[in-house]
């Protein structure tokens, strides 16, 4: 649970720090008329980015706890069968990097109102994402075919569990992208979807980061991690 606790400690520290700034020196029992005279304040962020930030904290908790469970399960296992690293694994990773870059380009194009580049990069990003998800399914089948079934190898079971959770989050992102496209088709101007595309890009970058961590703990870093767990 150390991993999850570290994340929560960071989150709570940030929250407490923010709250200290809001509360220290404030005497809430004192009324004032200043607020009525204040012009309506535009907060720096709208609800959607804050909503995404909160959601990403929840997703971090999901993956943090899954990784914690993986580490604890490793620590309890006297021996561990490490998963192979077929070429498809690296191809999938590359696809996700491309998808993330494409979404960043789409965001940039939306800011510059460049409709053609926006459409191309959005389409490319979505295609890479779909290919990534399909690639993950193929990777699972390849591992199963090689004898690494979920029932026999707990490492494989963790790969399927974490991979499926990650893919489901990617599908959720694709749904958000689809909503952007539908809004554009209804005649909404490109600058008006800028924020939504930006949020999608941030979401993709975040899921790329998550996959990088999963890729490390499940595949390339599994052996040293196991050695550390057992030590």
């Amino acid at each position: 649970m150390t991993i999850t606790l570290a994340f929560l400690a960071l989150l709570m520290a940030a929250f407490a720090g923010w709250l200290v700034r809001q509360s220290v020196g404030v005497q809430p029992w004192i009324a004032d008329s200043q607020t009525a005279a204040l012009p309506p304040q535009q907060v720096s962020l709208t609800a959607s980015p804050v909503g995404l930030a909160v959601f990403l904290a929840v997703v971090t908790s999901v993956f943090g706890l899954t990784i914690s469970a993986y580490v604890m399960r490793m620590a309890a296992a006297p021996e561990w069968d490490f998963l192979p690293q077929p070429p498809l694994l690296w191809i999938n990773g590359a696809l996700l990097v491309l998808a993330s870059l494409a979404l960043q380009t789409a965001w940039s194009a939306a800011r510059q109102a460049n409709a053609q580049r926006f459409a191309q990069s959005l389409g490319f990003g979505a295609a890479c994402t779909v290919a990534f998800i399909a690639g993950q399914v193929l990777l699972w089948r390849e591992l199963s075919g090689a004898g690494y079934s979920m029932a026999r190898y707990v490492g494989s079971a963790f790969f399927v569990l974490m991979g499926a959770l990650h893919a489901l989050h990617m599908l959720g992102g694709l749904y958000a992208l689809l909503r952007v496209v539908l809004r554009l088709q209804r005649g909404v101007a490109l600058p008006q979807v800028r924020e939504a595309v930006g949020l999608c890009a941030i979401y993709w970058h975040y899921l790329l980061l998550v996959w990088a961590v999963l890729f490390t703990v499940l595949f390339v870093g599994a052996e040293p991690l196991y050695a550390w767990c057992r030590s």
């Binding site: 809001q22 404030v26 005497q27 004192i30 009324a31 004032d32 200043q34 607020t35 204040l38 309506p40 304040q41 535009q42 907060v43 709208t46 609800a47």
Partner: peptide
């Protein structure tokens, strides 16, 4: 009712 400054409200 002594005057104080309060943190600005969060209003969107």
């Amino acid at each position: 009712y002594d005057a104080v400054s309060t943190a600005p409200p969060a209003e969107g």
